[in-house]
């Protein structure tokens, strides 16, 4: 079992490509689901696309969401609040979701690599968030 990862970007292509890069480095066992663009294929964010990606990425160990910025962050936060509300109303059953405060591509790679070892949601989230301190030069 591994933590699932959802990639939320304004662009469907950027979310898809980031999932490809992270998947190439983590191997095939990590569920990486892109949720980019609006539900009609435009530039922006869709709560329903993110909700559906979370459902697909959840294997029971929770889902880490990485966001690019702006409405991606606000929409992911809104979905997390929705899922928590639904969980309270229905006595559980909704996926556990954690948002990563992390750089999008670097955080996705760091999270995917650690998730491939079977690490838990909090450890995978911290791996993504530590990507801020990985200097390049």
């Amino acid at each position: 079992m591994t933590v699932g990862i959802v990639l939320v970007s304004h662009s469907a292509a950027l979310a898809r490509a980031t999932a490809d890069v992270a998947g190439a480095l983590s191997g095939p066992d990590v569920l990486l689901e892109p949720a980019g663009g609006t539900d009609d294929g435009g530039m922006g964010t869709s709560i329903e696309l993110i909700r559906s990606a979370v459902t697909k990425a959840d294997a029971g160990d929770g889902v880490l969401i990485l966001m690019d910025m702006g409405s991606s962050v606000l929409t992911a936060k809104t979905l997390q609040a929705d899922l928590e509300d639904a969980d309270l109303e229905e006595d559980g059953g909704e996926p556990t979701v954690r948002l990563a405060d992390a750089p999008f591509v670097e955080g996705a790679v760091a999270a995917a690599v650690l998730a491939s070892t079977g690490a838990d949601l909090e450890a995978v989230a911290q791996s993504a968030e530590q990507a801020w301190s990985m200097r390049k030069l």
């Binding site: 609006t38 869709s46 709560i47 409405s71 606000l74 929409t75 936060k77 809104t78």
Partner: peptide, 15 residues
């Protein structure tokens, strides 16, 4: 609003 706006104003006004 949250479902259909597509930009940051959707989650903000929707919430």
């Amino acid at each position: 609003l949250v479902a259909k706006t597509g930009g940051a104003s959707g989650p903000l006004y929707g919430t």
